[in-house]
């Protein structure tokens, strides 16, 4: 329960952030969706033992975070909620892959720890990129962008409607849980039978609401073809943003900047 409620709270926070104004916010949502997709692909395309190679990619979230006016605390919170989940499978790596692959001073590092570290970095990068996309664009605009990039209209419509009703139904759900809690005096466990009746009532209410919404949609000319407002316009800035991101990612992926910088530095200090 707390997780969903926390999640709903986060929806709210993200919506507020998305309503801000910044150069990132002003970009066409499609540009941001494309850039995010490129970024995610780049991150996961690195070798599983790569750690240093991933580091330059942190520049992307760092820039978006600051230019897009997203508070660090929001990002950290999001990462904290998500991390146990992402680390679950990765945590086996150090146990299973114990071959020492690197000796650095007296310290031996096994391949498992390397790949585990890489999983952690991947997680941090991918989750940050998704959060920043939402915080700088807004869910609704992301959906519209997906629609314009070719997702089926019925699917984007469903994305929008789901988002709208999550707030109403989770509110109804929590009122119901509260009412049940008040009368069970904390003693009764919620058995599956009780759950079935609670959730069943909620389902019927949702169903009836669905019928009422249906009437309201019909009354405003809905005929089963989802149509949504299209406002954004692709501009030169958007092209520049996508190209810039692509260039940066290509450089990081293929240009080996870490190695070059590292060897250069080591060379200078020797």
């Amino acid at each position: 329960m707390t997780r969903i409620e926390a999640g709903i709270g986060d929806l709210d926070t993200l919506d507020r952030l998305a309503a801000q104004d910044s150069p990132i916010h002003r970009l066409d949502p499609r540009a941001k969706v494309i850039a995010t997709a490129l970024f995610l692909l780049t991150v996961v395309s690195f070798s599983k033992y790569d750690i240093a190679g991933l580091t330059p990619l942190f520049l992307y979230p760092a820039v978006l975070l600051t230019v897009g006016l997203v508070p660090v605390r929001v990002l950290l919170r999001y990462l904290l909620i998500a991390c146990p989940f992402a680390l679950l499978v990765g945590v086996f790596n150090p146990l299973l892959d114990r071959e020492i692959v690197v000796r650095w001073g007296g310290l031996g590092i096994s391949g498992g720890w390397l790949s585990f570290g890489s999983i952690v970095l991947r997680f941090l990068l991918t989750a940050s990129a998704v959060l920043l996309l939402l915080a700088c664009t807004g869910y609704v605009a992301v959906c519209a962008a997906l629609g314009r990039l070719g997702a089926p209209h019925l699917l984007t419509m469903q994305f929008l409607m789901l988002y709208r009703f999550i707030f109403i139904l989770t509110d109804e759900g929590s009122r119901m849980v509260r009412a049940h809690g008040l009368r069970s005096f904390g003693a009764g466990r919620t058995t599956i039978r009780v759950w079935g009746s609670l959730a069943g009532h909620l389902l019927l209410r949702a169903y009836d609401r669905g019928l009422r919404v249906h009437a309201a949609m019909l009354a405003r000319g809905f005929d089963g073809t989802p149509r949504t407002l299209r406002v954004s316009r692709w501009s030169l800035t958007d092209t520049a943003f996508v190209l810039g991101c692509g260039l940066f990612l290509a450089l990081v992926r293929f240009g080996d900047p870490v190695d070059r910088l590292g060897s250069w530095c080591v060379g200078v200090f020797r």
Binding site: L162, F165, G210, F222
Partner: peptide
């Protein structure tokens, strides 16, 4: 779709709401 779209919306939201009720 004319009839299902609103039901799809609320039923999706219902799954979220039902996840709030633990048993």
């Amino acid at each position: 779709a004319e009839r299902k779209v609103p039901l799809m919306g609320v039923m999706g939201a219902f799954v979220f709401a039902a996840q709030m009720i633990n048993f």
